[in-house]
Amino acid sequence: MADLRIKIGSLEFRNPVILASGTCGYGAELEDFIDMSQLGGIIVKGTTLEPREGNAYPRMAETASGMLNAVGLQNKGIDYFEKHIYPLLARYDTHVIVNVNGNSVDDYTELSRRIDNLESIPAIELNISCPNVKQGGMIFGTNPASAREVIAAVRKVYKKILIVKLSPNVTDITEFARISEEEGADAVSLVNTLLGMAVDVRTMKPKLSTVTGGLSGPAIKPVALRMVWQAARAVRIPVIGLGGIMNAGDALEFIMAGATAVQVGTATFIEPRTAPQVVTGIADFLAEKDFDSVSRIIGAINRF
């Protein structure tokens, strides 16, 4: 079988398939369907310093080939995470990564410092791209100076593998990928959701309580793929691709466009076994084409 291992910084992953934050809970929700040891990693729910109730209902709207969400980072905060969730994560034989959020630079650094102390968490995904919170989130990820400030500040206090999750809601994704690289990030992951909205014609109201929300699913895949291709050509650090991956074919597109690894997100809602199926599908493709490792096809479209 082909070698599926990839590396992000000094961290080796069993394979390039990772569960995306916000679409896999804390792993336990999927235990009936997924053996975590089949995956490269799992990025658990977006976490903040303080507990957050999230936005009001309705938070979701189905759209053509996708869905809008406006959850707004509902989570119980880092204290609860450390006490009640973290102890359960060590049992997973895969890399467990925490998605880190904040309203301010201080929030991000304080939270990153706390997670740096958690032994079985080898990496964080710095979320500067959540479109569903009033403060922080995407505001950091769409302003180059703010992005630089928060990445630099976190890099100072967080010693392990730092992945920066980028927003697609920018004119030039390469600018933010470069800033991440310059400030010492080990990788960038992209894309977070695209800002969108939907209207209920019958009630003449927006379908989301927040009016706007984040679009995910196959609807955004071509846009995500283009941005991953652009980012991968702009930086030397690994790019982790996500956005509408529903099967191994989609994942291979991202890898061939330059992604070192991929994340499976919204697809898990419809078919919880998607991520392990993607792993198998990538292995089958490599075997069929006689490649000895997945690294051989990363960025393939630029070479052939």
Partner: peptide
């Protein structure tokens, strides 16, 4: 009967405000 995406407690879209929070 709330709108939901996953049905497994992951997406947090079908929330109900209760005395114990959402």
């Amino acid at each position: 009967e709330n709108l939901m995406a996953c049905g497994m407690g992951i997406c947090l879209c079908c929330i109900v405000p209760t005395n114990a929070g959402n």
